[in-house]
Structure formats: structure tokens, C-alpha cells
Design a protein around this nucleic acid. Sequence first.
DNA 1: AACGGTATCAACCGCTGTCCC
DNA 2: GGGGACAGCGGTTGATACCGT
Length: 349
Amino acid sequence: MIMTKSNSSSERNGLKKGPWTPEEDQKLTDYIQKHGHGKWRILPKNAGLKRCGKSCRLRWANYLRPDIKRGKFSLEEEETIIHLHSMMGNKWSTIAANLPGRTDNEIKNYWNTRIKKNLLKMGIDPVTHTPSLEVLQLSSILSSLYTSPQLNYPSLFGMSGSMVNNQSQMLNLLTTFISSQSRNQNVMNNNNILHQNQIGISTTSPILQNQPQCSQSMQLNSIQAFQSNQLQVQVQENHQNNTTMPNLWQYYGGYISDQQEAQSSSTMQSFSLPKFNSSVNNILENQILSCTNEIMPNFNLNSVLSSTLSYSSPGTLNSSSSTEDERDTYNSNMLMYNISNGFNDSGLM
DNA sequence: AACGGTATCAACCGCTGTCCC
DNA sequence: GGGGACAGCGGTTGATACCGT
């Protein structure tokens, strides 16, 4: 979009500043097409422009260059920006080098005005690219499991009911974990922001539910989503040009393309739950460690974490002959095993 | 219609790196 | 090695467009 600015340009030392006029653009373009830009410092004099060389260079590089691509960023371009930014940070020129026709200035503006804001709305730190909402998501899912009277939560964690003699301790663990999260005001604020997104998460989404408003059927959907690693989202019909949000979901684990969105703006879409990365796992581990220290003193988190490949299954436990300590350790390991299987560090990149 | 707040993006500023003498 | 000229880069500004009330 060409923004035509008013006569707000100023003149200092005989050099004009501010917005370029079409006449100036034409002079600059004609000159460069005939002679090349050469030394930028002497160009304006030769081209008959009352501009400094730097201003001419920027105008040409960011606007007049014939190979500049204009218009909306495509899904692929957006993904490339996010991906490259996650690797190299604010290296706009390097990022621009990977996006033919796009200038560093344009990418920088797009990042600052759209992508960064949407990342923040999603609870993803735009500097580190690590999600900050997943703890909430997990706690919400766990809360769903825990509060649904229809559900046998041990089976959801891969346990048979007979194996879990000490359910109360497991419940305590989850309760403590969940309540510790609900005290986190930032998390709650983020939750509210997500509810306001123009691209709405449907009411069947497990992640964004406030539990008091969550019906049992919704909770069942939560379980199904949790187990299948799929979310259903509903794209609202009245969304306004905000295609960045689903694109970001795609990058961070979910997927709705612009095309899908356009074709079925009011229908349900499925996409994968984001995988947790190592930083989120660290948060979870710390949370669980702090919870279990109090509830299950014999739980050895470090022994679980020392298995860097994956959390191994604790196997089976004879519930009748095992000690309470053994059952505690078993339950804790089973919890870690199931959490890690559901949310392992498969990497976002 | 008028107004205020927000989003967008072209353009500028200042710093740094590179080249050449 | 020192210094000046120049180009490139990232951060910031400010004018305009847009949107909601």
C-alpha cells in the first residue's frame, strides 16, 4: 500500500527530508535505470534531487527497486520469517535475503506490527520463541480429567484401576499442580487474551476452557483431544484479516492454512496440539518436583530426568505386595512417563 | 458525522563494519 | 595503524489509514 503523505517534509541545509513525491521517485528511477546508482553520495546531485545520498539509497532499496514484491505476506513467507527469526533473532537483512523481493524494512515492520503481537497473544515469547501457555494448557487438561466424574483418570494415565492403590496421593499431586498454576496471574491473563482472539478456539477445545463453564461432554472432547493429540478449532466468520493467528498455530504445532480458513470459515478444523519443547518441559519438571517433594518425598525426579532419551515406562506393579513408597514411586514415574509421551520434546523447528 | 485510539509502514537516525588511501 | 568515506543494519519516529464508539 502506498501511503501518500502530506507536505510534511522539511528542508535543512538545502536537503529535503520526509516523504518522497512521485516526481522525485521518477527522477531517481530514471537516473538509476540510465546510469546505475554508482556512488550514492553524488547521485542526488547528478539526478537533480535535493536529497542526501542515504535517503536516495533507502528510497530505492525499500520502495523503487523493480524486483520488490508488494502485497500480503504469504503463509510460506510468514513461516520463513518466524523460523529464521527463531534461529537468528532480529537479523532482518539476513532474513530478507531468504525472502526474494522482500526488504528488511518490510519484514521488520511486519514482525513488529503483526507477528510479534500475535505471538504474545498466543503466550509465546517472541524473543525466545518458547510457549509460555503450555503449563496452563497441561493444567487445564489435567483439571479436565480430574474434575470429570465420568472419567477414570488412572486409565487415562495408562494405569489400570487396580494398580493404583494410592489414588489420593495422585490426586493430591494433580491438585497441587493445578492449583499452583491457577495462582499464576499471568497465566490467567493469557487465558483471557486467548478467549478474545478473533480466530476463536471452539468450545470443544480442551485447552482454553475455564473449568466451571466446561460441560462433561466438553471434557470428554478434551480427553479425546488429549489422547489423539488433536485440537478442533472453529474459525469465526467475522474474522478480519487476521490470518496470522492460525499460521502461527501451524508453526507452533497446529495447522490451518489460509485456504482452509477461507473455504470453511465457520466449520470445525482439526490440527495437532503443539509439542512442548525443552524449556516447557523444564517448567513442568520443576512444577512436578516442587509438588512431589511435599506429597511424595520418595519420588526421585532426577532419576527420571537422567534418562535423556525418554521417560521409560515403569512397567507394572503388584499392588497387593508393594509398599506405599514403591507405589508412590511407581505412580510418579507413570505420571512422568505419560506426560513425556504426550508432550515430549519433539522440537518445534 | 465527529472524535479518539490503534495499526501500519515509509522514512529517518545513529551506530557499526568495510574499504581505501 | 589511523582516519575518512561509504554502505548496511536495526531501532525508532511520525504521518496517515483505519476502526470503533
